[in-house]
Computed example of a mutant assay.
Amino acid sequence: MYKIAVMGDYDSIYGFATLGLSICPVKDRDEAKTKLRQLAEGNYGIIYITEAVAAQIPSEINKYGEQTFPAIIQIPGVSGNTGAGVEGVKKTVEQAVGSDILFGGVSE
Rank of each mutant, 00 (worst) to 15 (best):
M1A: 11
M1H: 09
M1S: 13
M1C: 10
Y2C: 03
K3V: 08
A5E: 00
V6I: 15
M7Q: 04
G8M: 13
G8L: 11
G8H: 11
D9P: 05
Y10P: 01
Y10T: 01
D11I: 05
D11G: 12
D11F: 09
S12T: 09
I13R: 06
I13Q: 04
Y14P: 01
G15C: 12
G15N: 10
F16M: 12
A17N: 09
A17H: 07
L19M: 14
L19P: 01
L19C: 13
L19S: 15
L19N: 12
G20W: 02
S22T: 15
I23K: 08
C24L: 08
C24W: 10
V26I: 09
K27C: 04
D28H: 07
D28C: 06
R29E: 14
D30F: 03
D30C: 00
E31M: 11
E31R: 00
A32H: 04
K33Y: 04
K33L: 07
K33A: 09
T34V: 11
K35E: 04
L36R: 02
R37G: 08
Q38M: 14
A40D: 04
G42R: 08
G42C: 12
N43S: 01
Y44S: 04
Y44D: 05
G45P: 12
G45F: 10
I46S: 01
I46G: 03
I47F: 03
I47L: 01
I47H: 02
Y48M: 12
Y48W: 07
T50H: 06
T50D: 10
E51D: 08
E51H: 03
A52H: 09
A54V: 03
A55P: 00
A55G: 04
E60V: 06
E60M: 01
E60H: 02
E60L: 01
I61T: 06
K63I: 07
K63W: 01
Y64R: 11
G65M: 09
G65I: 11
E66R: 13
E66L: 12
F69N: 09
P70F: 00
I72R: 01
I73M: 06
Q74M: 05
Q74W: 00
Q74A: 07
I75F: 02
G77K: 03
V78E: 15
V78A: 15
S79R: 15
S79M: 13
N81K: 11
T82M: 10
G83V: 05
A84N: 06
G85Y: 05
G85E: 06
G88T: 01
V89H: 09
V89T: 15
K90L: 14
K90G: 06
K90M: 15
K91W: 10
K91N: 14
K91V: 08
V93F: 10
A96V: 01
V97D: 05
G98L: 11
G98W: 09
S99E: 10
D100N: 15
L102A: 13
F103Q: 12
G104H: 04
G105E: 14
V106C: 09
S107M: 07
S107Q: 06
E108N: 14
E108I: 08
E108T: 11
